[in-house]
Amino acid sequence: MSLPTGLVSHTQKVKSLYKQALRCLESWYDRREVYRYHAVLMRNRFDLNKDIKDMRIAKDLIAQGEEELFKKQHWLPRKFPHSPGGVAHGREVIPPDWVLDYWHPLEKAQYPEYFARREQRKREYVKLWEKKFGKSEALPH
């Protein structure tokens, strides 16, 4: 669960609602010209209220808009496959390389040549790094 880490301004809320409304329309109307027609209508609905200065009314309008969006959500919203919620999102989990460093010594002992070379490569890499960027300072404990 993501926690709110900052204040969301009213303008951001309106923009977010507008974008979500367009995405919702995209799910319902799969033909471009029909979608464009409804997108223009939606833009008009937002434009009609753009000059409202009274924040109480503006907040109320956003609440109404969000409720309408919720009630009209598509049963299968259009999603890009590799984006969150898409069919191919997070399909292949490739374990990171550092997992090997956490192997048990007994496990490592089964592949002695590989791990010996790995350690050597790590030392070489550290040497290369220090040559290029200098020695790292010891962290205070």
Binding site: D30, L76, R78, K79, F80, P81
Partner: peptide
């Protein structure tokens, strides 16, 4: 079509 399964695409 690059893993798209939605026929609307």
């Amino acid at each position: 079509v690059g893993d798209f399964q939605d026929i609307r695409y």
